[in-house]
């Protein structure tokens, strides 16, 4: 590592810190985009097998080149701007969708030292940045000047605001027991406790004491991603394709990339906050980045499984779930955790 630093300093001189930061960003974004591409392939294969089909199998061996071919096709397509659309906002909206999805990765730790920016309030940063993703959707719907797109945007705005509250409350429970807003600390705290002492550290992770919050976070996360069964913003059978109905080519692809990058982000966050991140589930195996990737893959598989299994929520049912079910659960569990931490039974010392 030191040799690399000295080598960089020798070549770039004073500009090396900036170049090094850019390199780190590249090292995260490039694998992320590759991950997004193969997540779409994985999704089509998994849902295909669940529906007793084969899925993509024509481009390359087992259809492995399919996502690359799709990407090329989207790059070559024309971007059509509707005549009555608000052009500036129409063009900016897809960028506003993808930028937060990428910016949030700046503070995601992969191991306790492998993180681009280890800032003190990284959990708050993630909440703030991801809450801005909704603007891409709303502005796309409004700027398209199309009724389906506008309906999709309105639905999405109401849905995202509702589920962000329960998501925020479950994060508050996590930071209460971790006594920190730093993601690295939150993971490290999960390595302590009675079960971790016995070598069964997977029972010390946050998912067990905060089980209701884990479930609320996972379901709210699915809703925040506009994924099935909460995909009312797209709702193919009701409002054609929702907010991105007027988009084509790469502008459409950016929405797609943002959705899948956000899926990977929520999977990473769930693994870090509730499933112990890079920690090994049992004492005799070493911790490592592979554990994080394994946990993320399981959660990503869950998202695909949801999509293949559940029918879409009706809009009023969706609002009921957010406001009348999740919010009371969160408020009660918040008090329970607070009392628990103040009682002699406190397990997070």
């Amino acid at each position: 590592m030191d040799a690399l630093m000295n080598f960089g300093l020798g070549i770039f001189g004073g500009a090396w810190p900036a170049v090094w930061t850019l390199l780190k960003i590249l090292l995260i974004v490039a694998p992320l985009m590759l991950g997004v591409a193969y997540l779409t392939y994985f999704e089509r294969k998994v849902i295909g097998y669940m529906q007793v089909r084969i899925g993509p199998n024509r481009v390359g061996p087992w259809g492995l080149i399919q996502p690359i071919a799709d990407g090329l096709k989207l790059l070559l397509k024309e971007i059509i701007v509707p005549t009555t659309a608000n052009k500036g906002i129409f063009i900016i909206a897809p960028m506003l969708a993808i930028a937060p999805a990428l910016a949030a990765w700046a503070v995601i730790p992969f191991t306790d030292s492998l993180v681009v920016a280890n800032i003190d309030a990284s959990l708050l940063y993630i909440m703030a940045i991801t809450s801005m993703g909704v603007y891409g959707v709303i502005l796309a719907g409004w700027a398209s000047n199309s009724k389906y797109a506008f309906l999709g945007a309105m639905r999405s705005a109401a849905q995202m605001v509702s589920y962000e509250i329960s998501m925020g409350f479950s994060l508050i429970c996590v930071l209460m027991v971790s006594n920190s807003l730093n993601l690295v600390d939150i993971v490290n705290v999960q390595d302590q406790g009675r079960f971790a002492g016995w070598g069964l550290s997977f029972l010390s992770w946050n998912w067990l004491p905060l089980f209701p919050m884990f479930i609320v976070y996972l379901i709210s996360g699915t809703a925040e991603l506009n994924r099935a069964p909460f995909d009312v913003a797209e709702g193919e059978s009701e409002i054609v394709a929702g907010f991105h109905v007027e988009y084509s080519g790469m502008a459409f692809a950016l929405f797609f990339l943002a959705e899948y990058a956000n899926m990977i982000l929520v999977a990473a966050l769930t693994s870090l906050l509730f499933l112990g991140g890079w920690l090994s589930p049992v004492g005799f195996l070493p911790d490592g980045i592979l554990w994080l990737f394994a946990k993320m893959s399981v959660i990503l598989f869950l998202f695909l499984w949801f999509r293949a299994t559940f029918p879409r929520y009706r809009y009023d049912q969706l609002m009921r779930l957010g406001w009348k079910v999740f919010l009371p659960i969160c408020l009660i569990w918040l008090v329970v955790v607070g009392v628990w931490m103040m009682s002699p039974l406190n397990i997070w010392k």
């Binding site: 309030a121 708050l124 940063y125 909440m127 703030a128 940045i129 809450s131 801005m132 909704v134 603007y135 709303i138 309105m154 705005a157 109401a158 995202m160 605001v161 962000e164």
Partner: peptide, 18 residues
């Protein structure tokens, strides 16, 4: 800094825009 983005940009202005 993060609170103003979280509260105003992330929630209040979404409803306002709505």
């Amino acid at each position: 800094a993060i609170a103003i983005i979280l509260v105003y940009v992330g929630a209040v202005m979404v409803l306002f825009l709505f």
